[in-house]
Design a protein around this nucleic acid. Sequence first.
DNA 1: GTGAAAGCGCTAACAA
DNA 2: TTGTTAGCGCTTTCAC
Lengths: 344, 344
Amino acid sequence: MVTVHDVARAAGVSISTVSRALTMPERVAAPTRDRVTAAARELGYRPNRAASVLRAGRAGAIGLVVPDLANPYFAAIAKGAQARARERGLGLFVVDSDEDPDLETEAVAGLAPQTDGIVLCSPRAVERSVEALEGRPVVLVNHEVDGLPSVVADHGAGMLRALEHLRALGHRRVAYVGGPERSWSDGRRRTGLRAAAVRLGDVELVELGPHRPQVAGGHAAADLVLASGATAVVTFNDLVAVGLVERVRVRGLDVPGDLSVVGCDDAYVAELLAPPLTTLRTDLRSAGRAAVDHLAARAGRSGHDLGDAAVVLPVELVVRGSTAPPRPTLHDDPDDDAVPTEDT
Amino acid sequence: MVTVHDVARAAGVSISTVSRALTMPERVAAPTRDRVTAAARELGYRPNRAASVLRAGRAGAIGLVVPDLANPYFAAIAKGAQARARERGLGLFVVDSDEDPDLETEAVAGLAPQTDGIVLCSPRAVERSVEALEGRPVVLVNHEVDGLPSVVADHGAGMLRALEHLRALGHRRVAYVGGPERSWSDGRRRTGLRAAAVRLGDVELVELGPHRPQVAGGHAAADLVLASGATAVVTFNDLVAVGLVERVRVRGLDVPGDLSVVGCDDAYVAELLAPPLTTLRTDLRSAGRAAVDHLAARAGRSGHDLGDAAVVLPVELVVRGSTAPPRPTLHDDPDDDAVPTEDT
DNA sequence: GTGAAAGCGCTAACAA
DNA sequence: TTGTTAGCGCTTTCAC
């Protein structure tokens, strides 16, 4: 292993000059700096991170804790975070908590001492995990807690957009198939849908769930949706939408003919389906990037100065083949496609 | 931050006793050990990993380098590795090299000093990356290099199984849509297919590619496959199969009616498709687990004693709806479904 | 602008 | 069985 001593000897300087030349180049005379960097490159010197963490307190790395790496949602966030961390010269350690609150806290506690901060995605045990940080910087993704910085999607706007779209097609009764009971984003989506329904005035909302956020959850929800009399449905995520479509077909009905379906997340399955899925897209990579930026900006600062600022990412409605006007019924109102009049 | 000193004071012992009680409990008297562990728990002591890495040389953690975390293939490996590492009380740091050979080497070099070994998945620059390890333990996944331990799928057996299946259905001309040019597994698959074709005697193989290992690659390959006169096709992975099916449909043809399709990997899209995809499955989580076990077994040992052993994982053919007998033609041989006779 | 020296928290000889 | 002590490789005062 090449150490500062080897570089110092090769460059004919002291180890402190080596350290300085590499970490604060402007405080070393140009010729000296060049000799040092040349020697370092030649010898293939790589600073021992453990040593510099121990001594300097800074790790030059951050941690990312996600509930499930196999979930494309979190994989996308991880990709974005990784890319940005690299751009900033930071290391990124990814840990998968396997959806387990205890493991999450464990992961945070283990990661905290050797990183400059933690990005905590969709936490399953926020309070305990934040406590385990002992005051070290943290950014929450897809979750909000008072006084903590966070990066979240604008679920309210997304839901409004979905409902406007369905309303414009002529739907007046829309179901929501909810996700896991304790999901923060599920709560936000419900709140957003209710607000949107009130705002639009003539759209009735049927809330269902909780359901598992997988294909199986969609299977389970399908019959409830059909029985509810809704002509359109918004699902917690795209996988639920997939299951829903499958089961609706088994019942001999058609999507979007008998039921329009809007997913969430724009997972890549969304466009592979037949029909491709209308869905709400958030740029998850930019969520990862924003979280890393937030952390990097706080690095060095001690207090929670601008700590509680929330980055809110836009949500875009991607219209594909799974949404269409409802089949005409006896009650059909010829005004449906017209510009809405004042609340009637 | 709670240090060994704090615990030592609280337990009324010296710092070395604390260290010993925590890392080699059997070498400390039971009552002392209990006092120490109690004090440690009470104070919420967490050993500073940076310090112990620096001093002991052991990191209690391993690194996993993958080309793309957003690829479910690698995500599954990561999950398996993570779970096993946890069972063994090891940390696992996941780094995404973004399919870039330079970044891969960089990641390995950065990870190596602070881990006890590296799991290198589908390397894009094996030689340089292994060199960057400076002799530290490494396990290759989905790649083989002489003298290095590895975990690979039995592509040969998988390809034989696929071809046997297609042959049993009556196919006599089978295309292979290859993946990236420099992919190790693509090479293994081609070799396996050729061997299988020779062995079966009456199956003709049409090799195509290289193609991108994504849906777009399948789009690009579809017309070539149709023009080749093959009645069945094996693709590099499931995404390519998806693209292939899409394009075949655009051409007004049917899967499996006009073309049978076998994917590889059993990514979760495979069963969502219509028709669900016949595919070759490897248990990737167990690949991750095996890699970690391999590394853990070598930990402590210096030499490359049993180092070059390769763990070969079984490949299973999962038959779903995308494979069926070919449409009868004028040349159809009534013996097609019979037990194969000697090479004719 | 550069060097000498003091540790960061921990482990592992070596002593007792 | 337990304590004392010497560093691991690095950063960072503090002199010069």
